[in-house]
Simulated assay, not measured.
Amino acid sequence: MSRIAVLGAGAFGMALAAVHGFEGRRVTLWGRDPARMAALDANRGDPDRLPGVVLPDGVACTADIGRVAHARVLLIVVSAQNTGAFLAERGADLPPVPLVLCAKGIDAGTLRLQTEIAADTLPEAKIAARLAALTGPGFAGEIARNLPSALTLACADAALGQSLQARLAARRLRLYLTDDVIGAQIGGALKNVIAIACGMAEGAGLGHSARAALMTRGFAEMTRLGVALGARAETLAGLSGLGDLSLTCNSTQSRNFALGKAMGAGAARPGGTVEGVATARAACTLSARHGVEMPIAAAVADVLEGRLTIDGAMDALLSRPLRDE
């Protein structure tokens, strides 16, 4: 049976542990807080992080990093802005096995993607030909309840990618393989920024037409930056780009959409990690560096940072010079 370690016990980490546990695979779910992990192991669930989901008996919950030593695959599911710190702190404790990065975001300080952070942080002997990224349209609660989902597994090494695809796919979790690691991660990161914009439009009562315009033009921004960074445009048109964009821009299950909606309505911001907040400014910095226009991402960053109101952002976008599509 597969030995899979999931490092990070938030909602998505719990969901991945659950889906593999239900497949009969041996899973270790690691989290930093010993008291919480002991409670999670005893209660087989966490109603605050993932309501209504019961972890199968094959999932062992622990705060002891030593218990992942015998894993054959590591899924890193800490937040995107904490990946570097986590790997710097814990990397020496991890076995030299395939490492799958599952967070969606661009590091705000270094402008690196998740696999780039791992490659730059871990000892060279531990990362040779063993990095991959898992991304795409999947809400944690739906994956954990075994509802049908399809995700993208991105790996530059064809043989490793095929091996991981076979190990990590499940009956209700279909994995599509790509070697475009940059494109898959750019799509997963930038769709969060556009989801915040769509949430703002929803909360402000700007209508479905405005949301459609933001999604479509936001997708164009995602594609332009992705291609400038070396991605293939068709990758952005797949699950990890357009697919994830369509999911997160239309549901309050998305924390990014929910944050934008609350801001648009003048309500209190919801709690929890919202990956698009840090990624918005990182995307703008990258776009400036590569000469790529991203007016929607720039507007979102300015609103989040208090330099622009939502009305002001919409006026600025609508007053841009007319152009061909």
Results as ranks from 00 to 15, higher is better:
G312H: 08
I310E: 00
M215Q: 15
A71T: 11
P123I: 09
V53W: 03
R32T: 05
A212T: 14
A268L: 11
M200F: 06
A220P: 05
M294D: 03
R44T: 10
L87Y: 09
V181W: 04
A197N: 10
A140M: 05
R25V: 03
S246D: 09
A133F: 00
G138T: 15
A282S: 13
S163A: 13
M37S: 02
V277S: 12
F12S: 01
A170H: 02
D107E: 15
I76T: 11
R36D: 01
D315P: 07
T248S: 13
M215S: 08
S287I: 00
R307E: 12
L247P: 00
A156G: 15
K261L: 02
E142P: 00
T152G: 11
A159P: 03
L101V: 13
A301D: 12
A213N: 11
S163L: 08
C61M: 10
P56A: 06
R171D: 14
V77K: 06
E325L: 10
I143H: 04
T110L: 11
A297K: 07
L245A: 02
D33M: 06
G66P: 00
A80Y: 05
L122I: 11
M215C: 06
L101W: 00
M263N: 13
A39Q: 15
M1T: 08
A313N: 00
M200R: 09
T248E: 07
V227F: 08
A63K: 08
D302I: 05
E124F: 14
D41Q: 15
A71E: 10
L7I: 04
R67L: 15
I4Y: 04
G218F: 01
E305K: 08
A210W: 06
I117S: 05
A166D: 09
R269N: 08
L242N: 06
H70V: 11
G10N: 14
G161C: 02
G105E: 02
R307W: 08
I127F: 04
R32L: 14
S149V: 13
N250E: 07
G230M: 08
L153I: 12
R320I: 07
A297I: 05
L168I: 11
A195Y: 04
F219V: 03
R281M: 09
N256Q: 07
V292T: 12
A103P: 00
A189M: 07
E305F: 03
Q81N: 12
A166F: 01
G207Y: 08
A288T: 13
A262F: 08
R255C: 02
G276E: 07
I127M: 01
A156P: 01
D311K: 14
L131T: 05
G58Q: 13
R289F: 02
R90A: 02
A166V: 13
A38S: 13
Q185S: 04
E275F: 09
G226T: 11
A5C: 07
K104A: 05
L99V: 04
V6M: 09
A313E: 02
M1D: 10
F22N: 14
L318V: 10
L151S: 04
R112Q: 15
S2Y: 00
L131Q: 07
I182W: 09
M200E: 07
I143R: 11
A88H: 13
I117N: 05
